[in-house]
């Protein structure tokens, strides 16, 4: 794909996706005043943050503080490039596409850690540590379920993984894959029940000191990570652009929207988990389940 078109495409998908996330969040949220309010609220909120005054802290790590939201947005964009939206349209369907996606999602940990660490303030730092503890617990199950989808395709390229689901989607072929992906995916985007680094018990945690445009970019980037996770989840578990009647891009959009709705809904349906419980959950429950998923798919492939 042409470089300029690629940049516009990725930016457009992330921008529209972030808006959809905000609309859904308002719609599922406790304060919901009808459809008009759903669509207006994100814009009003963004306008408020755009003119809000920036907080200053004592001796922050200024460069890292500015770069952390940009890094998060860049990671969302990098993960998105590997996914083919239609059979022929992908920014870069590289031969190790799911590894690219996995690497981008693991570096989210670095962005959150920098965001929490750089203001030189107590609660954000605690939030950063919480996310580091969390990320080390969900990182392995997340990578395992994503890479397992490559077993039936016999290729690490996302295009080949989508093509391998022609007869049977991976959500049926690997029944353990999608649930683990949804749980760990929500944790990657520290969304919903896993809003641990930004918990209200820390008065906002990692983003406590971020305000104004920095906070707005951080929020948009986090929604962008959620969009990337949904697009990739739709591609590797729900057959991506495959489907009858409708054109490929419409199927991708539809499946992405379903996953996005599940992610956003989970934020309002479940209570936030405590971090030590999540660490236990990650190592004792998610990791064995992910390993069973790998072995079952391996046996099936033989």
């Amino acid at each position: 794909m042409n470089p300029v078109v690629s940049v516009l495409f990725v930016g457009g998908v992330l921008g529209i996706g972030a808006y959809v996330v905000a609309v859904l969040d308002r719609a599922f949220g406790p304060v919901s005043r009808g459809p008009r309010d759903w669509f207006v609220w994100p814009i009003r909120r963004a306008a408020f943050l755009a003119v809000q005054r920036r907080t200053e802290t004592e001796r922050p790590d200024a460069e890292a503080w500015i770069l952390a939201p940009a890094l998060l947005a860049a990671l969302a964009a990098a993960g998105l490039t590997a996914v083919p939206v239609t059979p022929s349209l992908a920014v870069a369907d590289v031969s190790a596409g799911v590894v690219l996606f996995g690497a981008a999602m693991i570096i989210v940990m670095v962005a959150v850690f920098l965001q929490g660490w750089s203001p030189n303030s107590l609660f954000p730092l605690i939030g950063a540590y919480r996310f580091a503890a969390m990320a080390l617990s969900f990182g392995i199950p997340f990578s395992l379920v994503v890479l397992t989808t490559a077993i039936p395709a016999e290729s690490l390229s996302v295009g080949a993984i989508v093509a391998s689901q022609e007869g049977l989607w991976n959500v049926v072929r690997q029944p353990l894959g999608l649930p683990v992906y949804l749980v760990t995916g929500a944790a990657v985007a520290f969304w919903g029940p896993f809003r641990i680094p930004e918990g209200t018990d820390l008065a906002g945690g990692a983003v406590l000191e971020a305000s104004g445009s920095a906070r707005a970019v951080w929020r948009i980037a986090r929604a962008g990570v959620l969009v990337t996770l949904s697009v990739m989840g739709a591609a590797i578990f729900l057959g991506g652009h495959l489907g009858p009647v409708l054109p490929g891009w419409a199927w991708t959009a539809l499946k992405t929207l379903v996953l996005l709705a599940v992610f956003v809904w989970s934020g309002h349906a479940f209570a936030r988990m405590r971090v030590e419980r999540f660490v236990w959950f990650g190592w004792v429950v998610l990791l064995p389940v992910a390993l069973v998923d790998v072995f079952a798919s391996g046996i099936l492939a033989l």
Binding site: A96, A103, I107, M109, F113, S143
Partner: peptide, 12 residues
């Protein structure tokens, strides 16, 4: 990509 993936975890 594997090198980058490994290092992100290790550096944290």
């Amino acid at each position: 990509l594997i090198l980058i993936l490994m290092m992100a975890g290790e550096m944290t």
